[in-house]
């Protein structure tokens, strides 16, 4: 059997551990890192994300095929773009001023497009940002389950979309592929699927109706 891609999850707050746990359960090798010493998250990893490895961010990223950004967006400026060069990067962050405050750099346009401009050497995919961290795990279902829900995957590079669609499928959601980060704006706060946990037909209908209002 082909070995599954290695994940580095950056962020051990609300979101990072949930994504890490789902990926471990799906059989991926997973490292988790914060901006600090892995010793600080050793106990969290052992109890909350059994099977994952706490590591220094640079080491976790160096060994990873996929890097998941699950840090607060206002800390994104602390991430060194060179560290992520050549990597497939999942942007699970959100620009959500009402909840996290206003960030000037993210006021115009889609947050993942702005992230991608700064990470010019990486393939950036917007995914796993629009289902609440408290629901992401509870609503995950195996492929074919009648109550399986959908999750959006948006990127400018079709190969990157395909790779992350595979990850989303393995962790328990029907991937809905969106052809660009621009199209991925439907996944943002204020968009039609943000915070909702929809079936694939519901998701596609909501995204379509929203696209019409944009044009």
């Amino acid at each position: 059997m082909q070995e599954l891609s290695k994940l580095a999850v950056l962020g051990a707050g609300h979101v990072g551990p949930v994504i890490a746990r789902l990926a471990v359960k799906a059989g991926h090798p997973v490292a988790i890192a914060t901006s600090g010493d892995p010793e600080d998250i050793a106990l969290i990893t052992e109890l909350v994300i059994p099977g994952a490895q706490p590591r220094w961010a640079a080491d976790a990223v160096a060994d990873a095929d996929i890097v998941v950004l699950a840090i607060p967006l206002h800390r994104f400026g602390d991430v060194d773009p060179a560290l992520l060069g050549g990597k497939l990067v999942v942007d699970a962050m959100n620009y959500w001023p009402a909840s996290d405050g206003v960030l000037g750099a993210f006021e115009d346009g889609g947050s993942s497009e702005i992230v991608a401009r700064r990470l010019a050497g990486s393939a950036v995919v917007k995914a796993l940002n629009h289902i609440g961290y408290h629901e992401l795990e509870d609503r995950a279902r195996p492929a074919g389950a009648p109550d399986r829900r959908a999750a959006g995957v948006a990127a400018d590079d079709p190969a990157a979309v395909a790779a992350i669609a595979g990850l989303v499928d393995r962790i328990g959601y029907d991937p809905v592929r969106l052809p660009s980060l621009r199209a991925g704006r439907v996944l943002q706060p204020g968009g039609p699927v943000f915070g909702a946990v929809l079936t694939r037909p519901e998701f596609e209908r909501a995204a379509r109706e929203d696209a019409r209002t944009l044009t």
């Binding site: 106990l43 969290i44 109890l47 909350v48 609440g132 408290h134 629901e135 795990e137 509870d138």
Partner: peptide, 18 residues
């Protein structure tokens, strides 16, 4: 305030171990 309460059990264990 939402979802299955049992998923918080791990936080209680994490707290006592910490």
């Amino acid at each position: 305030i939402g979802g299955p309460p049992a998923r918080f059990a791990v936080y209680s264990q994490l707290f006592q171990q910490a």
